[in-house]
Amino acid sequence: MTDLFIIFIIVFIIFLTCKFFINIYNRLVMLKFNTDKAFANIDILLMQRADEIPNLVKVLDKHTTYEKDTLQRLTELRTRCKSVSNQDEKVATHNEMTSLLGGVMAVYENYPELKSNASFLALQQRVSALEDNISDRREFFNESINLYNIGTKQFPDLLLAKLMSFELKSLLIVTDEEKRYDGI
């Protein structure tokens, strides 16, 4: 067998290996940038929702029976999500905010005086409209994150993902309100 042929085989195998890893690298980079784009797409709506918190606190403050701690925590979360830059921390903050806001917005059922409060009703409508938009974009964001997480954990992609320090990312949670089925 000629030496040239052996060289060809070796070059060919090296080439295939390089091409294989370049493909994985490009795929991982694209998946990562997709998650960033998806987050940028939803972040603006999440911030708009967070900006409604001071109004909510103002309205609910008058009804002293409602837990002050929850409102205090919501205010803290709003400040925190404006200050943090890490995407995962932001997602965690928004997830906690989503749970608390769901509880606060549902509280009006127990307070007849809130049902007739125009400010609260207007606020509830604004938040509800925002939640509808967030719901669409959250689905898109969660799908991007899911594709990315699978991409970084499947073999052999995870070898390169580890080298590139690609960590798992958190999903945005779905509220209990959205999960609830009220029947027909």
């Binding site: 795929r27 694209m30 998946l31 997709n34 784009k37 998806a38 797409n41 938009n133 669409d136 974009r137 689905e139 898109f140 799908e143 991007s144 899911n146 594709l147």
Partner: peptide, 14 residues
């Protein structure tokens, strides 16, 4: 295989 499917109502540009 890489792109997530977008909802038409909330399409991001690009």
């Amino acid at each position: 295989t890489i792109l997530p499917t977008s909802k038409i109502r909330s399409l991001a540009m690009g």
